Amino acid sequence: MKRFDLDYYLNGLKAENTVVLAQAITLIESKRRSDQDLGDLILTEILKEAEPSIRIGITGTPGVGKSSFIEGFGSFLISQGKKVAVLAIDPSSQRTGGSILGDKTRMEMLSKNPKAYIRPSASGSALGGVNNRTRESILLCEAAGFDAIIVETVGVGQSETLVNNMVDFFLLMIQPGSGDDLQGIKKGIMEMANGIVINKADGDQAKLAKRSKTDLLSALHLFAISDSGWQTQVELCSALEHKGFDKVWSMISSFEKQMKGNGLFAQNRCSQNVTWFEDRVNLGLLQVLTSQPELTRLHQQLKYKVQENECSVSQATAELLALARQLLA
């Protein structure tokens, strides 16, 4: 990758140059130490002139139509005067580490709009439906003038909730009659969701979608109201027919207004910064430890012993952690 200096990135981001934005995200995703150092300098500088934005996380089971929804919803936001950035996370192969990164193909019309920017990234080894640098990418998009940042996760699962700690509004998408989907989603994500959208509310599924909304609202009334006082809302939408985007945006705007009114919007972002810091520290400590030759050798030896049933997992873990503590002492 061609090297540029700090001013190149800062001036390019300030000029809302999407080419520079793409280069900056590539820089902060790089594993090279020199790139990471420059990326840290960029992030430190852009924090001084943070622009107001709304960060929206979108999750849902595969096939629910997240990409189609985001393309239509993003176009709607642009019609309302917004500049929209989409950070789409694709799952990485557990075997090769590769990823298809096909989100631009799925959002062809939006990707051509000069007021939009779509960045597909591989999830890598990160849990939570995002990648290790999604938070940094959000800040870079904001610095480049995008005031609506949409983070699309790889799907719903037990670990697909990390995105909730980096966005202002967490949106869960489901399909009409998604009883089985809701069983798979479990209560945790339902409680985290600030809003739920029932997509594909069109054609033969329109009546089913309305019934699903009624059922969902009844279920949500059983949940305790959050400390913010916000009650999770449910809206119908048809990405196919481009209907319901205005109601979804109204829901998000109402949430933002209420959170800013009670001071929790800024407080939530501050809490997210602390979580971000703790995550980076934990990752850094892990990298420091795994770079120790002595620890790496013992790790490999213990893996073999566990594989051959020569020692228990708990015994091997205790032995490895004992050496780690000794190295950190």
Rank of each mutant, 00 (worst) to 15 (best):
M1D: 08
K2H: 13
R3C: 07
D5W: 04
D5M: 04
D7R: 11
N17R: 03
V20S: 06
Q23E: 14
I25V: 14
I25T: 04
T26C: 10
I28V: 14
E29P: 00
S30A: 10
R33P: 04
R33F: 10
R33M: 08
D35K: 00
D40I: 03
I46V: 15
E51A: 10
S53T: 11
I54H: 11
R55K: 13
I56N: 00
G57Y: 02
G60E: 02
I70F: 09
I70T: 13
F73R: 08
F76Q: 12
Q80K: 15
Q80N: 11
Q80R: 15
G81N: 10
K83A: 09
V84W: 12
A88V: 13
S92T: 14
Q94R: 15
T96S: 15
I100A: 11
L101P: 03
L101K: 08
L101D: 06
D103Y: 08
S111L: 07
N113T: 07
Y117P: 03
Y117S: 02
Y117C: 08
A122Q: 04
A122L: 02
G128M: 03
G128K: 00
R135V: 05
I138F: 07
I138H: 08
L139S: 12
F146I: 05
F146L: 05
D147F: 06
I149T: 08
I150N: 10
E152C: 05
V154K: 01
V154I: 13
V156R: 00
V156H: 04
S159T: 12
S159R: 11
E160P: 01
D168H: 14
D168M: 03
F169Q: 02
M173H: 10
M173A: 08
K187A: 13
A193H: 00
K207E: 13
K210L: 12
R211T: 12
S212A: 05
S212T: 15
D215S: 11
L216W: 00
S218A: 08
L220E: 02
S226N: 12
S226G: 08
T232C: 12
T232Q: 03
Q233M: 04
C237W: 00
S238E: 04
L240M: 08
H242R: 13
K243S: 10
K247A: 12
W249N: 14
S254C: 11
F265P: 05
F265R: 10
A266F: 09
Q267C: 05
Q267R: 14
N268L: 06
R269E: 09
R280V: 06
G284H: 05
L289C: 06
L289I: 10
L298K: 12
L298Q: 15
H299F: 13
L302E: 08
K305G: 01
Q307L: 12
E308L: 11
E310G: 13
E310H: 12
S312I: 00
S314W: 00
Q315W: 11
A318I: 01
E319K: 09
E319N: 07
L321R: 14
A324N: 02
R325H: 11
